[in-house]
Design a binder for these strands. Structure first.
Lengths: 129, 129, 129, 129
DNA sequence: GTGGTCTAGACCACA
DNA sequence: GTGGTCTAGACCACA
């Protein structure tokens, strides 16, 4: 898989990396057990500091997306539910609040925003696991 | 109109202020030419730092929502587009991508994610008049 | 409250800091809404790098123990359940495995280890929330 | 005796090896003077790096569990205490403190924590003979 | 002032 | 080689 970073973006670099890996996992591009590039290698590719990649990997480990083994590398973990229903909703809401604020700022209305999300979700074609 | 600020919220205070003014404009609660409270006055009302209100106003001026007239205060400006259609979509898409990866790794599916966005949008009552 | 760091310890410094704050919270020394020292101030006190303190705070934020507000500081958050039952057990087990390995290395047997844990728990006198 | 290694485990491989040998000694499965497989042979059996086995053996030698006799291999040593009683307790307490803060912030209470430790200890069958 | 991000560079544990 | 931790120092967003 190909990870890319947009330096001028609002999103922190480590967030961009983590999000792209999340997307690759939910879209099936990365499967359980698949190895990820090493921290140093990916850092070199993206021309960012290894600490930044490590931060992204650490977040994904905490959220149960990755497993790391010192000396061996990082691998896609078996999917498991880490957060309570309430916590999951809290996190989803926080992400949605950001989108709503951005849509509002850009002048999109309710229906346009919903329609655009629907379109993008349908493109991914992700089914409930 | 009444602006309210929740200090413990995830959203920065200046964001909360700017978003509420934007919503008031979109919903027709505020019309072109309507005056806004002065930075100082609003800051006093909301019990926040004047810099914070100034930052919200500055963003709205930059985006063409407000106009300031030296010595007279700030007013709702005539709507004008700052970004091209393509640029607006590109920015919305970036925000939506983040929501999608977050939602899906949290285990929400297409319908749940859409439904939650719909719910939140309806609560805010963000619709073009 | 007084936080202390043992430089020669096996435990990472950021882990020591986070654990001590956790203990202060569960023992009631720190209550909901209580402010914590700023990252920079605590770093100065402990003579460690601010990044290290920030890392501890970030972990506590993720685990729902703290809330940070940019520009205002860090505060003890209202207790909430973040993790699923399975995840909580997974984390407890990981911690217990470390203790068991340490006890074994030090030559303590089953009963001695259990007894010591009981003793320490009773001293804390913590009731189910 | 049969040593087994779980590569995906949280515990480092050298820890798993050392702990299993310690348990075999404590439970009487291995007695003073019993020979251990050579580093190379055990590494081959477990399909791990010889350095890893060597590290486990080195720790056990340091702690007085094993003795190596040049050219003859490694043997279970006569039990001797490396740390004073006070030092042993100090180290156990440090490990227990971490478990306690982890358990309590996860929302486990005194009895649940004790019960889980008991369960895990019984499973491992760690008792002085 | 506050917390958050990032870099450059070092050192450690582990395999 | 792998990931994890820490420091020193810079810069940013926010209040």
């Amino acid at each position: 898989m190909q990870i890319r970073v947009i330096p001028g973006s609002n999103a922190a670099i480590y967030r961009q990396i983590a999000d792209q890996i999340r997307r690759a996992v939910v879209s099936g591009q990365l499967a359980v057990g698949d190895p990820l590039p090493s921290v140093r290698q990916l850092a070199k590719e993206l021309v960012v500091n290894p600490n930044t990649v490590a931060k992204a990997y650490a977040e994904l480990v905490r959220d149960g997306v990755l497993e790391t083994q010192a000396g061996r590398g990082a691998f896609i973990a078996k999917r498991r539910d880490v957060f309570t229903k309430t916590e999951r909703l809290r996190r989803l809401d926080a992400a949605l609040d950001t989108v709503i604020s951005e849509a509002l700022t850009l002048g999109f209305d309710r229906d346009e925003t919903l329609e655009r999300l629907r379109l993008k979700l349908d493109r991914l074609d992700v089914a409930k696991p």
